[in-house]
Write a protein that binds this DNA or RNA. Structure first.
Lengths: 406, 406
DNA sequence: AGTTTTGTTTCATGGGTTGACCTAAACCGA
DNA sequence: TCGGTTTAGGTCAACCCATGAAACAAAACT
């Protein structure tokens, strides 16, 4: 994995750059080169790649080694004459990122190291009907503690945490998360309180946004612009353009579930009519059939579809059509070339993909000469936790100087 | 006007920064501070604002003065004790940007100086039925020559040109512009050929995109995220988020005219059904009534609406509703807070705004707690030319070093 | 004339570069 | 097997150049 880093030729400083700042810029440049290298890279190769001289590279590498951000990983004997090169690669010890996720079926925690490898992944099934937000976040704080302890044994230091929540978030405040029965819950403050002893900086973000970032990492940056559609009790979307998450003015972008599909269609709890959610969310696909006890909506739909239940198949067709219409709106507006079906949709993709493609090909103006990709997400239900952990560590990946200055 | 500049805390270098690069970073920082200042600013104020020391500011200011990017504009006697401050402001001589626009009713050319002031604006009524792209672009090249000559007399040097075209553009290639009857016309190459003697770097972009940038400038950066909807024979949109134009993966974003409003609605020439264009474009509002000779579609609609023609008023209502639905999709997806009605819609706004607002308030999820603004665009039909000229000059505004190094 | 603030000059600092020289560790040919 | 060759990497000087600090000059006010 090479991370979220995208080259950008523009440089916009808001504060002056002094000589010391110069070193940190070049240090970050070198670090990004090491991040981007698929195999361990030598000092000389770095000098050639960055344009800096060997003495400067040596200085910087020494600093990175001292800060445990990179490691020397043995010699490369490639048969050529001369002294073998010393490989440098991102350290799998040192700083790490913690991801936390409140999923419809339980709580998840995840630790990712600097290389982007998942080092810890825990899941605890849970429901939310009977418990309030403080209890849920206290439980999550316990899981965070366990994750930090477990990875500390492997010489990892968790430096930041990101919490994924199924709903729009605004500076740590969860505006509304119907799946959890939350309204205006200050999840950031609650979690900070519950993890006070850990002293972690905590960020809260939308689940679909983080899952999109997870998929971006997992794709090794082969995706340039895509929508991650997360199906569940509601429908959310994370939009990535040019390797960057599109957050909107207030961070409430990606409300695909409330895009109008049929202007005079079914009423939606939001007050509008014909929202995508009323056709393609799990409750809509299940219509009024109750979910059997000890099962989940996700499982109920897949088992019925597998069994060939005609009502369910018809509902999936309706859902796919509606999803395709909403997505073609998004693509006409945004000009992106890939759709990732995530959340519950990743399990249902075999019933949805064809229908979605049909609608896209008909309705997206540029589809005629620029093909679109529709495929299930890679990381499945763990996309959001992993994305959250990766986001947390990405701050250090992009700005290693802040970690070195700790 | 303060320009497109937005502070960005991230710094991502792809090439090493040496001492000289350091100076250029700080030079650009200082230049942006001067751009952002509403009134002439002194060296000492710059030092306080940027965090650099006065000697450094003096050095940089000397360079900017030598390069004619700024001028010393007299002393400020504000009654306080001490030596009076020497005001520094953006030069209204020196580099300038040229904008060119192929409008449905004619050709336009515009020159804007570094301060963002329009210094030259010319319009030549014209139709396209009888002429091919080469003839049109040759005419435009003549207008460019005149504009450059006229402004050279005022000590302005046009350094770049941007061409606005009503249709999706891809590296200078106009994919399709139905209003002009163009398909796959390499407008960039043709214009470069016709202006070879002027030796200008030429960019081609979508008309709605450039108009959006024009409105952004004109708003003095009070807009953070907005959609500029351009009504005409078709419907296009320019989307600005965080002060930056959203171009999409291939630069084809903003195809609002082909957003699906009624999935089983009227067929559209694009092959789909129920596209916004089939309800809200000028031809749709005029339905089948022919435009009188010596009039334009724009004028025909406004005169009929002013006269209270019931069919036209009904059509405007349908158009407003469809526009509101499509815009609410865009806002749910993008999270922006302002809609600017541009092109022909700016003339029709008194009949459209209320209907659009109604739909937005019903269909946008966040409208309940975050109010939306809907208003006509400020610059009217000249938005695109002005935006094009501003884009051209904006390269120097953002990276003055490239101009100094010429 | 003294004060205050602005803008400039002078000098020291410090980072990066160049270039030279050196060591380490592989290969190669005798 | 051994010394020569080749390449990687480290170390040291000298230099460049932008910034910062402090002293200095300029132009207003009191």
């Amino acid at each position: 994995m090479t991370g979220l880093v995208r080259p950008s030729s523009t440089r916009q400083a808001t504060e002056p750059v002094r000589q010391e700042g110069l070193r940190s810029i070049n240090l970050e440049l070198v670090f990004r080169h090491i991040l981007a290298a698929p195999v361990p890279i030598s000092r000389t190769e770095l000098a050639a790649g960055t344009g800096l001289t060997r003495p400067t590279i040596s200085r910087i590498v020494d600093e990175l080694l001292a800060g445990k951000l990179i490691t020397e990983s043995g010699l490369t004997h490639d048969g050529r004459a001369g002294r073998p090169r010393v490989g440098l690669s991102i350290s799998d010890e040192g700083p790490a990122g913690l991801g936390l996720d409140i999923r419809s079926d339980g709580l998840a925690a995840c630790v990712v190291d600097l290389t982007g490898t998942v080092r810890h992944l825990a899941f605890a099934p849970s429901t939310y009907d009977d418990r309030g937000a403080p209890a849920v976040l206290a439980e999550l704080a316990r899981m965070a503690g366990t994750a930090i302890e477990a990875t500390a044994a492997e010489d990892l230091t968790v430096v930041t945490a990101t919490l994924a929540v199924p709903g729009p978030v605004d500076a740590g405040m969860v505006r509304s998360a119907p799946a959890l029965g939350w309204r205006n819950v200050d999840a950031g403050a609650l979690l900070r309180g519950a993890t006070r002893h850990l002293d972690l900086p905590i960020t809260v973000d939308n689940e679909a946004n983080l899952a999109a970032l997870g998929e971006l990492y997992a794709s090794d940056n082969t995706l340039s612009g895509f929508v991650y559609v997360s199906g569940g009790l509601g429908i959310g979307a994370g939009i990535v353009l040019d390797g960057q998450l599109l957050r909107g003015v207030r961070g409430w972008s990606g409300e695909l579930g409330h895009v109008t599909v049929y202007p005079d269609g079914k009423p939606c709890p939001c007050g509008s009519r014909g929202c995508l959610q009323t056709y393609a969310s799990l409750p809509a696909i299940l219509s009024d059939d109750p979910v059997p006890p000890h099962s989940t909506p996700d499982a109920a739909v897949t088992t019925r579809a597998d069994a060939g239940d005609p009502a369910t198949l018809a509902a999936l067709d309706t859902a796919g059509t509606a999803l395709g219409i909403a997505l073609s709106d998004a693509i006409n507006i945004l000009d992106i070339d890939t759709v990732l079906l995530g959340g519950a949709f990743s399990l249902l993709s075999s019933w949805l993909t064809a229908t979605v493609r049909t609608e896209l090909n008909q309705r997206v103006l540029t589809a005629a000469w620029a093909p679109l990709t529709v495929r299930p997400a890679q990381l499945g239900p763990d996309a959001a936790v992993i994305g959250a952990a990766l986001t947390a560590i990405d701050q250090i990946r992009q700005h290693p100087t802040t970690w070195l200055a700790r």
